Each structure stands twice: as structure tokens, then as C-alpha cells.
Computed example of a mutant assay.
Amino acid sequence: MCLAIPAKVEQFTADDNAIVELSGIRKEISLALVDEVSPGDYVIVHAGYAIQKLDVEEAERTLALFEELYAQTGNFPDFPQTGTT
């Protein structure tokens, strides 16, 4: 099963990459598949790539659902640690 997670873009790095943040975890991802992303935007991240830009309201709704799931189960989907800063 694959899971794509909304993450907030914090800053750009070299070569079409950016640092994103999700629940305190920072990770460098590729922005090569999406256009017109700015710091502060939310993107859907899958396998180290932003695959879609997401509006703030939808991102916040989705993240709230993940938090609710965590509160009920004690399990939060793993955000890959490879490449964290």
C-alpha cells in the first residue's frame, strides 16, 4: 500500500528540491513533478517527490484526519526518514 502525505514546503534547496515539514519531521524532496510551488505551500509527498500542490484548507483537513486516526489508534503513518535534515 502506498500513502501520499500533505507536507508544508519550508525552503528551496538546489536542483528543484525543497525541505518540507510534517509533524516536526523535515525532509528534502524533489519538486520536479509540480509547478509554481512556493515556501508555505502544501504539497502531497510520495516516495520523496511532490506529486501535487494542495490548497491549505484541504491539507489542514487531511492532516486533522491523520491526527484523529493517531489519537484513536496510537499509530501515525511513517514518514520516510531517509534524507531528513
Rank of each mutant, 00 (worst) to 15 (best):
F66I: 00
G48A: 07
A64F: 05
D78Y: 05
T13C: 09
F76P: 03
L69I: 06
C2S: 15
V34R: 05
V56A: 11
D55M: 07
D16N: 15
Q72P: 01
L31M: 07
L3N: 13
A7I: 00
Y49W: 11
P6S: 02
D41C: 10
E60N: 03
L54P: 00
D41M: 08
A14V: 08
D16V: 10
Y42V: 01
T73S: 10
Q11R: 14
K27G: 04
E28Q: 13
P80R: 12
I25R: 08
K27D: 03
V34W: 03
V20D: 03
S38H: 14
D15E: 15
P77Y: 04
T85S: 10
E10G: 01
P39H: 09
F12D: 07
E68F: 08
D15C: 12
S23D: 06
E21C: 02
T84N: 14
V56K: 13
E36W: 06
L31K: 05
A32T: 10
E58N: 11
V37G: 08
G83V: 01
E68I: 04
A7N: 03
A4R: 12
L65Q: 05
P80C: 13
L31A: 10
K8V: 04
N75H: 05
P6R: 02
Q52F: 08
A4Y: 10
A64G: 06
G74F: 01
D16Y: 11
A32C: 12
E57S: 10
P6G: 02
A18T: 07
A47E: 10
I25V: 14
I44P: 02
M1C: 15
C2P: 13
R61G: 03
Y42Q: 00
F12W: 09
G24L: 05
G48Q: 04
Q52M: 11
Y70T: 04
K27L: 04
S38I: 09
A64M: 08
S30L: 08
S38Q: 14
I51T: 11
A7L: 02
F76V: 03
L22M: 13
E21K: 07
Y42C: 02
L33Y: 12
S23T: 00
T62Y: 06
T84W: 12
A18D: 00
K8E: 11
I5L: 02
R61I: 10
T73K: 02
D15Y: 07
R26A: 04
L54H: 00
N17L: 08
H46L: 13
A14Q: 15
E21Q: 07
G24A: 03
L31C: 11
A50Q: 02
K27P: 06
Q81C: 10
I29W: 05
C2E: 12
V43Y: 05
T84D: 09
L63C: 00
L31Q: 03
A47Q: 13
